[in-house]
C-alpha cells in the first residue's frame, strides 16, 4: 500500500485506504473502470465523445428547463458531495474495500438529468485533477458512468419501486439493485469499448470486467441502500420529491431498461463468439476500412489453449443476472397491468 504514497504524495497524510478511495479505483478490482488514454482506438474514443456531448447537452437543456437558476449551486455542490462521498469506504476483507461511484444514488435523489450533469462533472474532475481516466477517453468514461450508469440506475430503481408498490422494502431493494446493476452494466460497456478498440479480447474482457464488477457492485449497492435508509429517516421529503418526475422521465426509464438489457445480452454474445464483433464489422463492410487503416480497428483475436468452459461459468453468471432482471421486469409489467385494470 506504500506505493500509493508516491502516486499521491499530497495524500500521504491520509491512511492508505483513504488514499485508494480518493483516487477512484478500488484495490478489489485490478481492472478499474476509468479508462486511461491509449487504451481506446481513436475512432471509438471520438465516437464516445460524440455520444457524451449529445447526452450531456440534452441533460443541460432538461435541467435548465426544470430547475432554472437553482441549478448552478445545487449541481455544483452535489457534484462535490459525490466526489467526497467516493472517499468514504468500508473494508471488505484482506485490505480490499468497497466504495461508491454514486451514479445510482445521484439518479435516485436528484433525478436522472441532474444526475447526468453531476456525474459528468465528477468524472471530468477526476480526469483533470488525478488523471483518473484519460482526456481523450473522457468521452467514453462519461458515457459509461454518467450516461449509462445513471440511466440504468434510475430505470432499475423505478422498476423495483413499482414492483414493491407502496412498501418500504422497495426503496432499499431498489437502491441496492440500482447501485449494483449500474456498476455491472457500465463495466460491460467499458469491456465492449476495449474489445472494439482491439485492446482486450471480448472473450476475456467481458467476463473479467463483468465478473469483477459483479463483486464490486455489491459494495455500491449496499452503500446506496444505506444512504437511502439514512435519507429516508432524516429527510423523507427529498426521496418522495422524486415521485413528482414520474411522467417526465418515462422515456428515460424505458431507455435505461433497454440499455441494460441490450448490453446484458450483447456482451455475453460478444464474449462467447469472440469473432462476433468482427462478423458485425464484416457485415457492415467497414472491416475493409479497418484493415486499410494504419491502426487496426478490429484485430484478429483467438485464445488458444483456454477451454471455453472456464470462461463459460462466468458467462453463465452474466446470463443469470440477465434472467433475474428479465423476470423482475416481467413481474413489474404484469403488476402494472393488474393495477391499471383495477383502477379502470
Amino acid at each position: 500500500m506504500s506505493t500509493l504514497d508516491w502516486l499521491y504524495p499530497p495524500l500521504a497524510t491520509m491512511s492508505a485506504k483513504e488514499a485508494i478511495a480518493t483516487d477512484g479505483f478500488s484495490p478489489a478490482g485490478p481492472v478499474p473502470m476509468h479508462i486511461p488514454d491509449g487504451f481506446l482506438s481513436t475512432p471509438v474514443a471520438l465516437l464516445m465523445w460524440i455520444v457524451a456531448v449529445i447526452g450531456v447537452a440534452y441533460a443541460l437543456w432538461r435541467v435548465n428547463r426544470e430547475l432554472d437558476e437553482r441549478q448552478v449551486p445545487l449541481m455544483g455542490v452535489m457534484a462535490a458531495a459525490i466526489f467526497a462521498g467516493q472517499m468514504l469506504n468500508f473494508s471488505v476483507t484482506g485490505g480490499t474495500s468497497g466504495h461508491l461511484v454514486g451514479a445510482a444514488l445521484a439518479a435516485i435523489v436528484l433525478g436522472p438529468w441532474a444526475a447526468v450533469l453531476v456525474m459528468t462533472c465528477v468524472v471530468g474532475t477526476q480526469a483533470l485533477l488525478f488523471q483518473d481516466g484519460g482526456l481523450l477517453a473522457l468521452g467514453a468514461n462519461i458515457v459509461n458512468m454518467a450516461l449509462v450508469g445513471v440511466a440504468v440506475g434510475y430505470a432499475v430503481y423505478r422498476t423495483v419501486r413499482k414492483l414493491a408498490g407502496d412498501k418500504n422494502w422497495g426503496l432499499f431493494a431498489g437502491g441496492f439493485a440500482a447501485g449494483w446493476l449500474s456498476i455491472v452494466i457500465a463495466a460491460l460497456l467499458c469491456a465492449l469499448q476495449l474489445a472494439i478498440s482491439g485492446t482486450s479480447p471480448a472473450n476475456i474482457a467481458v467476463p473479467a470486467m463483468g465478473g469483477i464488477h459483479m463483486l464490486i457492485g455489491i459494495g455500491e449497492g449496499l452503500i446506496t441502500a444505506g444512504a437511502l435508509a439514512f435519507l429516508y429517516a432524516a429527510r423523507r421529503d427529498l426521496l418522495m420529491a422524486g415521485k413528482a418526475q414520474v411522467s417526465v422521465s418515462r422515456g428515460l426509464w424505458m431507455g435505461g431498461l433497454a440499455i441494460a438489457i441490450v448490453l446484458a445480452v450483447l456482451s455475453p454474445l460478444a464474449s462467447s463468439h469472440p469473432d462476433g464483433l468482427e462478423w458485425v464489422a464484416e457485415q457492415q463492410g467497414f472491416i475493409e476500412a479497418a484493415r486499410e487503416a494504419p491502426y487496426q480497428l478490429i484485430p484478429d483475436y483467438v485464445f488458444p489453449g483456454i477451454p471455453n468452459e472456464a470462461v463459460a461459468t462466468i458467462v453463465a453468471g452474466i446470463f443469470g443476472a440477465l434472467i433475474v432482471f428479465a423476470v423482475t421486469y416481467l413481474i413489474a409489467a404484469a403488476r402494472h397491468r393488474r393495477e391499471s385494470l383495477r383502477t379502470r
Binding site: A81, I82, L100, G102, I223, G226, L228, L231
Partner: peptide, 22 residues
Amino acid sequence: WRARVAGQMVGSLFLRGYDRSE
C-alpha cells in the same frame, strides 16, 4: 453492517451538501 455505516455516512454527506447548496 460496515457497508450500512458507510452508506449512512454517504447519506449524511449528501444531505449536508444539499442543505449547503440551498
